[in-house]
Nucleic acid binder design. Structure first.
Length: 342
DNA sequence: ACTCCACTGGAAATATAGGTCC
DNA sequence: GGACCTATATTTCCAGTGGAGT
C-alpha cells in the first residue's frame, strides 16, 4: 500500500512545488546575486503554519545548488536552537567549523568571529521559526555578514518586528518579503494527490477522501499530509488494501495530537506538570496554578519562573492567556476544536 | 473616582552544570 | 586534583498596569 514512505514524511521537499510559482520565483530572484558571488538581500518569509514556507525555502536553495557549484546551504530550526549560542553553534556545525570548539567554554563572540572569518563558498542560511528566538540578536549578527544569504521564516511579520530592536527593524524593512496565504481546498487536494501518486498504491485512497482531508486540514498542508501519513501507515499496519473511512476519521485527530505532542516533548518535567495542571483543572489564575504546582512537585520553582513557563507555553500555542492583569487566566488550547468548519 | 493588590515582564544577581588548562 | 572559564536556568527585585471592590 505504501510505495515510498519518504514523500509523506514531514521534512520532505518535493521535486515540484504546487501552487507556489510566484513565491518560488520571488525568492529565487532575491537569492540570484549569490550565483555571481555577490551578497544577497535578506529574505523574510511569513505566513500561517502549513503554507509551505519551509518547503519553498528548501526547494529554492536546493535548486540553486543544482545550478551553481559553489553554494552551500544550511537549515536551522530556531525553535529547537532558541538561544543565540545554540543557533550560531548549529550553523558552524553544519559548515564543519566546530572541530576544535566542541568545548562548552567558548564565548559566543568566538562563534561570531568564526563566522566572520568563514571563507568557504557562499552559503544560504535558513532560519526557521525565527519568532521563537529568545534573543533575535542572532539575526543582527548574521545580517551583516556578506558571505551569507539569510532566509528568515516566521508566522507573523508584526510579531517578528515587535521583538527586535530598532536598528534591526530598519534594516529588515528593506529586505524582501515573501508572504504566503493558506491553501484553498482544491490546492490542498492537488498537493495531496501529487504525494499519493509518488508514495502510495494506485487505489489506496479515493478522490472524495482526499477532499475530506483537504477540508479537515483547513488550509494547512502540513496537517493535511500528516493526516494522510497517519491514515496510510495505519491502513498498512492493519493490512488493508486501501484506506477505509474509519481509518481516515481517526487519523484526523491522531495527526493533530502528533503535532501537539511535538511541542509537549520539548517541555521540561516541571513545565509538563504545569501544563497538566492547566489541562486538568480548566481556567486557572497564575497563583492557583503555582499553588497546585507546589503541591505536586518535590523541588518547586518560584512564581516568577512558573510565569516564564506559562508565557513560553502560550508562545508555543499550547496555552491561551486571557486577561491582561488581575483577571489573567490560562486555558489549554484544544487543537481538535480547530477542525470544526468555519 | 479612588485605592488596593495580583499580575506582568524587564533587568540584574545568583546558582548550576559542564567544560578547559595546568 | 583545583583554578577558572562558559552558557543556561532560576531567583531576586521591582516599576508599571489595570481589574475588582469600595
Amino acid at each position: 500500500m505504501i510505495r515510498d514512505a519518504r514523500v509523506l514524511r514531514a521534512g520532505f521537499v518535493p521535486r515540484e512545488v504546487e501552487h507556489r510559482d510566484a513565491e518560488v520565483n520571488h525568492l529565487s530572484t532575491v537569492l540570484e546575486p549569490i550565483t555571481n558571488g555577490d551578497p544577497a538581500n535578506t529574505a523574510i518569509v511569513t505566513g500561517p503554519s502549513g503554507t509551505g514556507k519551509t518547503c519553498i525555502s528548501q526547494f529554492v536553495t536546493e535548486r540553486l545548488r543544482e545550478e551553481v557549484i559553489d553554494v552551500e546551504a544550511t537549515y536551522v530550526n530556531c525553535w529547537r536552537n532558541y538561544t543565540r549560542f545554540r543557533t550560531l553553534y548549529q550553523i558552524l556545525d553544519d559548515l564543519g567549523k566546530t572541530i576544535d570548539i566542541h568545548r562548552q567554554s567558548t564565548p559566543h563572540d568566538e562563534l561570531i568571529d568564526r563566522l566572520q572569518q568563514y571563507d568557504g563558498p557562499r552559503t544560504v542560511i535558513i532560519l526557521d521559526e525565527v519568532d521563537q528566538l529568545e534573543d533575535p540578536g542572532v539575526i543582527y549578527d548574521l545580517h551583516s555578514l556578506p558571505q551569507f544569504a539569510i532566509i528568515c521564516i516566521a508566522n507573523k511579520e508584526e510579531e517578528l518586528f515587535s521583538r527586535v530592536d530598532d536598528r534591526l527593524v530598519s534594516r529588515l524593512r528593506s529586505s524582501e518579503h515573501v508572504r504566503m496565504d493558506k491553501y484553498h481546498d482544491e490546492q490542498l487536494y492537488d498537493i495531496l494527490h501529487a504525494r499519493v501518486r509518488w508514495g502510495l498504491d494506485e487505489d489506496a485512497i479515493s478522490d472524495e477522501q482526499l477532499y475530506r482531508i483537504a477540508d479537515a486540514a483547513a488550509g494547512d498542508a502540513r496537517l493535511a499530509i500528516g493526516m494522510l501519513r497517519t491514515a496510510a501507515s495505519k491502513a498498512d499496519r492493519e493490512n488493508h488494501e486501501r484506506i477505509t473511512d474509519d481509518i481516515l476519521l481517526s487519523s484526523a485527530d491522531d495527526a493533530r495530537a502528533q503535532i501537539q505532542q511535538k511541542s509537549l516533548d520539548t517541555l521540561t518535567p516541571h513545565q509538563q506538570v504545569v501544563f497538566d495542571i492547566v489541562r486538568d483543572h480548566g481556567p486557572l489564575s497564575p497563583s492557583e496554578i503555582h499553588d497546585r504546582y507546589t503541591e505536586n512537585v518535590d523541588d518547586p520553582r518560584t512564581k516568577r519562573t512558573v510565569r516564564t513557563y506559562l508565557s513560553k507555553m502560550a508562545q508555543y500555542n499550547l496555552l491561551d492567556a486571557e486577561g491582561t492583569s488581575r483577571d489573567r487566566e490560562y486555558t489549554v488550547i484544544d487543537h481538535a476544536a480547530l477542525s470544526s468548519p468555519e
